[in-house]
């Protein structure tokens, strides 16, 4: 079914080595337009490293990375710019600029790439803040005045500033309480559906896998072991996957999913 879909990110034979430790040894992965792809793997399996390699924050030691059909493996910073404005990035703790208000944070990429009138910029920034599920009065607050969950939403607002086609999320629900995490998953789902986003989601959260992801890629032993729908992945025989999905947390999330599936998800 995936043959006719456009792959916006293609990773082929990606290799990453730190000193003598081989993190990735031949990672192959394709991300298709419009899907939410969850990437899971044990701590130290190289999920974040893979994301950084795709984003160009780390130069891979081997293999190729293609974005929107163009090879971006060895691009210089300047040549990368046209690609950068097509993806948005949410770091683990938001990575907001602490000396700027939330609205100013959202306006940083807008100012960098486009020359818009001030009032439109203000309103666009406010719209992104509201899209990220924050109240309007959060716009003039500084990151230190926000809770962890709100900082993530503010980071999401900044990631959405340029209307990206691909959204990279690095463990967006880590550090949130279960209710906040579920609300964040809902928010990502709503935005993905309405804005037609492609989402590359690095996560540890089993609930997110079941509730949010169209496909799940499992990173272990330096490779992507399987990349398919969660129903297929959870039946995979690899020991790490069995430990993950058959363990108490995986079973709980699956059970939860089965219980809530018939009812519509609570939205807000």
């Amino acid at each position: 079914m995936s043959a006719d879909r456009e792959a916006v990110i293609e990773v082929e034979g990606l290799r990453n080595v730190f000193g003598r430790q081989v993190v990735h040894d031949g990672v192959d992965l394709r991300v298709f337009r419009g899907e939410v792809l969850g990437v899971i793997g044990g701590s130290g399996a190289g999920k974040s490293v893979m994301m950084r390699a795709i984003l160009g924050l780390k130069r891979p030691d081997g293999g190729r990375i293609r974005m929107f059909g163009a090879d971006t493996t060895h691009l210089e910073a300047e040549q990368r710019k046209p690609f950068e404005r097509r993806f948005g990035l949410l770091f683990q703790d938001g990575a907001l600029f602490s000396s700027l208000t939330v609205a100013e944070n959202v306006k940083v990429p807008l100012n960098e790439y486009y020359d818009l009138p001030d009032d439109l910029q203000d309103e666009l920034a406010l719209l992104k803040i509201r899209l990220a599920g924050l109240p309007a009065d959060a716009a003039h607050k500084y990151p230190s005045q926000l809770s962890g969950g709100m900082r993530k939403r503010a980071g999401l607002a900044r990631a959405l500033a340029l209307d990206p086609e691909i959204l990279f999320l690095d463990e967006p629900t880590s550090g949130l309480d279960p209710i906040g995490a579920a609300a964040f998953d809902d928010l990502i789902r709503t935005l993905t559906d309405a804005l037609g986003l492609t989402v590359f989601l690095v996560t540890h959260d089993m609930d997110s896998l079941y509730n949010l992801c169209d496909r799940v890629a499992v990173l272990a032993d330096g490779k992507v072991i399987v990349a398919d729908t969660v129903d297929v992945v959870e039946r995979h025989p690899h020991p790490w996957i069995r430990g993950c999905f058959q363990g108490p947390r995986g079973r709980g999330a699956a059970l939860q999913q089965a219980r809530t599936a018939p009812q519509p998800q609570g939205s807000h």
Partner: peptide
């Protein structure tokens, strides 16, 4: 339909008035 969904979402999230700056 995709654009309509986007427009509806933006319309619901847009503030009716731009909040006055303090």
């Amino acid at each position: 339909e995709a654009d309509a969904a986007l427009l509806r979402l933006v319309a619901t999230r847009l503030e009716p008035e731009r909040p006055a700056r303090e």
